[in-house]
C-alpha cells in the first residue's frame, strides 16, 4: 500500500510532546484503508468458512495472482509479441485470472478432499498457497511495480494527473487509490448484503452452510454451491489484492505476507460466520495495527498486538463480535 504520508501542517513550530497528527490522524486514515483490505480478505474467508468449514490459507494469494496478471496484461511480452492494455482492461484480466485460480483450486483440490477431515482440507489450501507462490517466483523472478490505477505514466483510466490529493481533514494527503479502496469496499459490502438477502444463489449458499443435508433434500446442489462460493471468494481475494498492491512492488507471496494474517484475524474478530462482522473486524484490525505501530514504541508491536487481540477474542468470546457460532 502506498503510504501517502502526512503533510506537516502546523506541528513544526512548537514541538509538542504528543503529536496529534502523527499519533491519531495518520493512523486513523491508514488504518481504515488497511482495514478495508483486511475486510475484503476476511469476507472471502467467511464465505468459504460458511460453505466448507475451513480457513483458506490461499485466499490472499489469489490477490497476488491478480496483481501479477494485471502487470503482465499492462506490459506483456510472450513469444515475441508485446502488448499494452489499458489499465481497466488489465485489471479485469487480472481479477478474472485470480478468480479462475480459485475455481481451479475448488475443482482440483477441495472437491476431491470434500469428505476427508477438515485438517486435511486446510493443509490442501496450504499446498495451493505454496504451489502458487512457487509458480509466481518461477514465472516472475524479478517482480515489478504495479502502478496506481490513475498513475499518468501507465494506462491511466482517468485524467487525474495527481496521484494524491489533499483532503480537508487535518491536512493529509490521501491517494486516489486509497479512496478507491474505500469505495470498492462499500460497494462490495452492499453488493454482498443484497446478494445474500435477495438472490436465489445467495440464499442457497446460506442454506447449505446451515444444513447441507436438508439443503440437498430440497434440491440444492451442494457441489455447485461450493463452486459458486469459491468463485466469489476468488473474486473478493483478487480485488483485495489489486487494491492492496496499488503502486507497490509486486513479488511472489506479497499479499499473503502483508494481508493474510490481518484478514484471518478480521474474520475471527468479527465472527467467522458473519459477513458484516468481517468488515467490522477488518476495520478494527487495521486501526489497532496502525495505532499500535504509531503509539507503542516496541519492535513488532503491530503483529504482537494483533496476536493478543486474536487470543483474547478466542478465549473470551470465540464467536467473535457478530458471529453466532464458533
Amino acid at each position: 500500500m502506498s503510504v501517502a504520508l502526512l503533510g506537516h501542517a502546523a506541528t513544526t513550530a512548537v514541538p509538542l510532546a504528543f503529536d496529534t497528527q502523527l499519533k491519531i490522524g495518520q493512523p486513523l486514515i491508514l488504518g481504515i484503508v488497511q482495514g478495508a483490505i483486511y475486510g475484503l480478505i476476511g469476507l472471502g474467508l467467511v464465505l468459504l468458512y460458511k460453505s466448507n468449514r475451513i480457513f483458506n490459507f490461499a485466499q490472499a494469494e489469489f490477490g497476488t495472482i491478480a496483481g501479477l496478471c494485471t502487470l503482465l496484461a499492462l506490459n506483456g511480452r510472450l513469444f515475441g509479441i508485446s502488448w499494452h492494455m489499458p489499465y481497466a482492461v488489465a485489471a479485469v484480466v487480472g481479477v478474472l485470472i485470480g478468480t479462475l485460480t480459485a475455481v481451479a483450486t475448488e475443482r482440483l483440490v477441495i472437491r476431491p478432499l470434500f469428505n476427508r477431515p477438515k485438517v486435511i482440507l486446510v493443509v490442501g489450501t496450504v499446498g495451493v498457497l505454496l504451489t502458487l507462490i512457487a509458480i509466481e517466483s518461477l514465472a516472475f523472478p524479478q517482480g515489478d511495480t504495479l502502478p496506481a490505477f490513475n498513475d499518468p505514466k501507465q494506462g491511466a483510466v482517468t485524467d487525474l494527473k495527481d496521484p494524491s490529493f489533499r483532503v480537508g481533514f487535518a491536512g493529509y494527503n490521501v491517494s486516489w487509490a486509497q479512496v478507491l479502496t474505500l469505495i470498492v469496499l462499500v460497494a462490495l459490502a452492499l453488493g454482498a448484503v443484497a446478494f445474500f438477502r435477495y438472490s436465489r444463489q445467495g440464499t442457497a449458499i446460506l442454506a447449505v452452510s446451515q444444513e447441507p443435508t436438508a439443503a440437498q433434500a430440497v434440491g440444492i446442489s451442494v457441489s455447485r454451491v461450493s463452486l459458486l462460493t469459491w468463485t466469489l471468494a476468488g473474486f473478493l481475494g483478487s480485488v483485495a489484492g489489486l487494491l492492496a498492491l496499488q503502486s507497490t512492488l509486486v513479488g511472489p507471496g506479497i499479499v499473503t505476507g502483508t494481508a493474510l494474517v490481518g484478514g484471518i484475524t478480521a474474520a475471527v474478530l468479527g465472527g467467522i460466520t458473519s459477513l458484516p462482522g468481517a468488515f467490522l473486524g477488518g476495520m478494527l484490525v487495521g486501526l489497532i495495527q496502525t495505532f499500535a505501530a504509531a503509539n507503542v514504541d516496541f519492535r513488532g508491536s503491530q503483529s504482537v498486538v494483533v496476536g493478543l487481540v486474536l487470543l483474547l477474542v478466542l478465549l473470551v468470546k470465540p464467536t467473535g463480535l457478530l458471529g453466532s457460532e464458533a
Binding site: F55, R299, S301, V306, L314, P318
Partner: peptide, 20 residues
C-alpha cells in the same frame, strides 16, 4: 482452543515471536 483456531494462534505466534 482447538482445531482451526489453534492453527491460527500458532500462525500468529510464529510471526509475532519473530518480529518481537
Amino acid at each position: 482452543i482447538t482445531g482451526l483456531y489453534l492453527s491460527l494462534i500458532t500462525l500468529v505466534f510464529g510471526s509475532a515471536i519473530a518480529t518481537s
